[in-house]
Design a binder for these strands. Structure first.
Lengths: 208, 208, 208, 208
DNA sequence: GATGAATGAGGCTTCATTCAT
DNA sequence: AATGAATGAAGCCTCATTCAT
């Protein structure tokens, strides 16, 4: 956890440091990121960094918690209007929101994405530190689908949640790879088309 | 490519170096791996390393090509007896072979798995260097399924191949995470059970 | 440019580093000079060096700018009393001042002299970094001579400036080569004698 | 001196090695040149290099002697038809031949030119090893001029020879710097124009 | 609490030379 | 005599962390 010193900093300075860290972790894996890179971007003295954070990992974990919180908030806000939708509409919507989050918060999303490629060990630490987020979301939707009897009751919740999450990661990766190369609009369309194709399979596969 | 100097080395020494490198890349991401770690394990002088390889990347790419070749060979051998099997039996078998490969070659598999988490850039280089493997395998099976009219012709081959590959990675990751903690046999059974559950969904989702 | 860190250092330490660098570059060409040599002489840790300078070149260019500034200052001070002298007296004086500078600042001069033998590329960089000095001095004197109608107007200013500079370098080189081997006084006399001989030719060659 | 082993090599191989060395020393100062660079270009084994030459310096000195010999030969051939020319015509011709040599043997010339920028120490060694060439040529011409009473007898032979040589180096440097950037023909014309301007001054300066 | 200089470990790469085959 | 693998010294640069002011 960042020290109280950090949280006592004036808002603007905290922001500057956070932004610098995001930039660094968006561009580098944890192993490649460096304190040097961050203090330079944030224009703070070396010593200060260690007064705010125990080390890079401390900052990294803090950042990821922040990102998760904002992402969940983003999703909840957008899903709140769809309380009555059926499971498959909901899923389609969830995938769409995921890519919207990337568009609205490219840097946050990039860090989050890089995180998915880190060591099991590091991931474990972050999860320990209170992050369960994504999978739980899918589980919630699946359980809701089971209750509404829209989903085949033979399906294993945990496994399906994992599959849905991974499909999302897979599609998102393709979206990001294509990004910057083609026109954004086409790219988005292509992503949504793939979402539809994937959900076509999944829907047939799991519906009652 | 390793220099001819490397290939001229006596078999035993090449092996020693390769093994040391595998150990290093199994335990570390590319960014974390070091020449130092390898030469120490292989017990060769620093200078020699650079006489054999241009740099770490050179060795890494060579290694991955080797791993791929051996993996493909492994799979082909085991699949050869199943020429007449239907698509879903084949898929189930493929997932099983994948975990068998891990059991027979834990180190190779670990390096291959870590590779999947590397930079897009590094992955691109490796693919450039001649590695397309996995996805193509799935595509082959899907196309065969389409010809045999076992698969819904509405399905997009490329996308499904990606999904199948990612499901494999996802299940394998769980298998590996559990590994070393529980008893191997239970772990394997649990993996195969998950494979069945996943394929239950996929089969329903894509069959004609 | 050296970092602000360097300029914040206490005077004594800056001096120590500068002196060490001068010693290194006086004894070695740029290609032969080493960071190791400098930090040893200056008795600073390796890490500090890189906190002060981006690399050897950074330090080298900084040093040469300093040297040039001091040299120009030296010359201007000594020439200021001769505002009315005729061109040839002035030239003779300039050559004399050059050797006096060497005597007063042997190390600075040695580095400056070595610089003249560096790569065109490196020289270019230094000139880019703001150093035009020498040739301009000669051009100024020649133009003054043309205005005062002491010099044949057929003469090409730029070329003559180059010739005068090179003659100076040539004579200086002989002076330096002889130096340390013979007695300083004789050496100086011999240098001035050669200056007179050279200027005897040049004067006849360019005077109106 | 290269070992007898080297001279016993078949002509073609000697040539290959010599050419490789020329390329290396044309592109690098002595301090920057490396054995590695040469054996790679010449495609000879490392061990062979040390069987032929004691070290880099041995090869370097050998090379320079060869270059000198060929240069002198080149000049003598071209000057032989001008036995009766007056001193200044001869000088003009000499400067012209110098640039022609560069055009006919760019690599040889580049190495020779780099040599002029080496350590006094290294230059000394080469001269020790039997190379006096250039200056002697100028001295010869000057002495001939004195005998023919075309040159002012007050002139110091040694100094004038040094000046003439340095003027040549200076003009040649400008020629080489411009080279590759502008059209060769214009460049040559510009060089010859500068030669004329310089000799205009020198002629006035030294003629009887 | 803020600052930023000090430090040296640790990794990378190149190189000249030797030596066994 | 030819070959080319072995070797480790030497230089480069980056980095995380500490500590005095």
């Amino acid at each position: 956890m960042p020290s109280s010193t950090f949280f006592n900093l004036e808002e603007e300075k905290q922001q500057r440091i956070t932004a610098a860290a995001l930039e660094e972790f968006a561009a580098n894996s944890f192993a490649e990121a460096s304190v040097a890179g961050i203090i330079e971007k944030a224009a703070i003295p070396r010593g200060s960094f260690y007064q705010y954070f125990a080390d890079l990992e401390d900052l990294y974990i803090y950042l990821l918690k922040e990102i998760t919180a904002r992402k969940i908030n983003f999703i909840k806000t957008r899903l709140s209007k769809m309380e009555d939708a059926d499971t498959f509409t909901l899923l389609r919507q969830l995938y769409k929101i995921a890519v919207e989050f990337v568009e609205h918060n490219p840097r946050l999303a990039a860090v989050g994405n890089n995180f998915l490629k880190e060591d099991r060990e590091l991931q474990h630490k972050v999860y320990q530190a209170g992050d369960r987020q994504a999978v739980d979301f899918y589980k919630m939707i699946i359980n809701r689908g089971l209750e509404r009897e829209e989903i085949d009751s033979q399906v294993e919740v945990e496994l399906l949640a994992g599959m849905l999450k991974n499909i999302n990661i897979y599609l998102m990766e393709q979206y990001l790879t294509a990004n910057g190369r083609e026109k954004p609009l086409e790219n988005m369309e292509s992503y949504l088309a793939k979402v539809d194709q994937a959900l076509y399979i999944i829907e047939k596969g799991i519906k009652k």
